[in-house]
Amino acid sequence: MKKSIFGIALIFVLAFMILAAFDMRPFGEPTVSEMDDYYIQNAQAETGANNVVTSIVFDYRGFDTLGEATVLFTAVLGITALFREVVR
């Protein structure tokens, strides 16, 4: 009984996922592209970095990277505090 309920739920979820996949836009054609075009045209001249992804991560969107670094720092803090009795 339980297994059949699980099976029916799985089939429903899979069907909805496949239906949603047919509705997706073609790969590489975003709906709104003003920001992307600005980055692709001006990133190399403004930051001097050839890798546009890195110039976005470390320059235009530096706050994101600051948050990511803080998350990692907090993770280390948490693990060190969790094992403080065992490791010293």
């Binding site: 930051t47 001097g48 970095a49 050839n50 890195t54 110039s55 470390f58 320059d59 530096g62 990277t65 670094a69 990692l72 720092f73 993770a75 280390v76 693990i79 060190t80 094992f83 490791v87």
Partner: peptide, 26 residues
Amino acid sequence: TGGTVPIMNIAVGLEVLAALTVIILT
């Protein structure tokens, strides 16, 4: 080239390698 981008790369690289190594060692 790149201004502060390479310096930030080196800083974040040091931070990530040390943080993950501390997690592994602990």
